[in-house]
Write a protein that binds this DNA or RNA. Structure first.
Lengths: 226, 226
DNA sequence: TCTTATAGATGAACGATATTCAACTCCGAA
DNA sequence: TTCGGAGTTGAATATCGTTCATCTATAAGA
């Protein structure tokens, strides 16, 4: 059971390598299929096929289809987190970072085709988003509050409400129920959840609107980056 | 084809009566089963059985299971609308009415056991809620804005964001991820989406906190009322 | 009242799909 | 080289939503 050391950093045996490949291939395949047809329409068989794996093997790695969907969402969310990270790099003011974060999330959720299908399971998406971005955002809100910049009463509550609002807004945009123009408006409204009035929020977002270097702005969103 | 007049107000024939009974029985049965086990776990067969109807009959009244779920949600939402109506009866100030509306919706979504299962399909719930309460709430926001009481930029956007936030908050409460104490806090935060700062919102909600007469406060939520 | 065309009800059958499991493969330790 | 078992496999299972050929009861006409 210990032929090759499995401790991190050391060569892994063929079994371990195969397992790693399978898990990655499965998540990638699931991400592809689910982004193409939506989570519900994606079948476990097609996912298994695309991952070059037997149908039963999927269940060695994921308890259920929903479990797999969550894993996919966590991967995709990782991409969003990275994008937020680069968009906010260099800024100090927590309030501004928060504003940029909201804007980036709104943009991502409404522009990346991959999200358009995933958002349909808005419940799961909001869950994962809340947890994945929670620590970062809640800390941000706490700092902004401490510095007197925002007055968001309970950062966790604020973030929870914002998360669902973002997902809901994304859904609406994708279904064309809302004009894409209102995207910055939505960001400003969401800032108000954190206790910033419209004019201040607007200035945070518009003044030196962070024009990211293209390579950052175009950074791919998920699996393709480590 | 016209033995008994089918025009409204006139005696209906047996066929028409049976159809009305079936439709009502189906919605009631679906509401029961879906509230007990959740929308997904509810099977069309059990719903048909409880409505004393053949499995295929359901499809004479509803195009699909989702269609049926939406019909159920619209019924349940009707109850919420009535509850909001009585809770706000007599008030003039649009801003205050809006505040009470938010509070009532939050209370309902988090306290009525029937909602606890339905909320899992948060996407559909938010959709129906947005449409069902939309005209009322958007008008409210517009009036409050006109009177200078609120500054909600785009009432429709504000209401859309709020709707999803309410549903998400309800979900979190039901899953015990959030302390029920924060319910008024949540209402205050949601008021901020409409452009009212925390202190003002608090006064709107706390000062003469509308202590409704019990018969109004306890009003049942849906199917049991016409 | 009797006949009859048909709207509406019925539930067995269908198709799709998530999930299970008994058989099989192949890795890796001795 | 052998062998135990972890990991894989895909056919079989179970469950449902949905369809449809068949049947029933109604209402209009005779």
């Amino acid at each position: 059971m210990k032929h090759e050391e499995t401790v991190s950093g050391v060569k892994e045996g063929r079994v371990a390598r195969r397992q790693r490949r399978n898990r990655e291939a499965l998540i990638r395949a699931a991400s592809d299929v689910m982004s193409e047809k939506g989570i519900d329409a994606a079948t476990m068989l097609e996912i298994a096929d695309r991952a070059d794996v037997g149908a039963g093997t999927v269940y060695n790695y994921f308890r259920s289809k929903d479990d797999l969907a969550i894993a996919v969402l966590e991967e995709v969310m990782q991409g969003l987190a990275l994008r937020v990270e680069s968009a906010t790099a260099g800024y100090e003011d927590a309030a501004r970072i928060y504003a940029i974060t909201l804007m980036t999330m709104l943009e991502t959720a409404t522009s990346d085709p991959r999200w358009q299908q995933l958002l349909n399971r808005s419940g799961i998406v909001a869950d994962v988003m809340f947890r994945r971005m929670g620590p970062f955002t809640i800390d941000l809100l706490s700092r902004a509050k401490a510095s007197g910049r925002l007055q968001a009463g309970d950062p966790e509550l604020t973030w929870r409400l914002s998360t669902h609002a973002i997902v809901g807004f994304g859904l609406a945009v994708i279904r064309k129920e809302v004009a894409p123009v209102s995207l910055p408006t939505a960001a400003i409204r969401l800032m108000s959840l954190a206790g910033l009035d419209a004019s201040e929020a607007e200035s945070l977002l518009s003044k030196p609107r962070p024009t990211l270097p293209p390579e950052v702005a175009l950074q791919p969103l998920s699996l393709d980056e480590q």
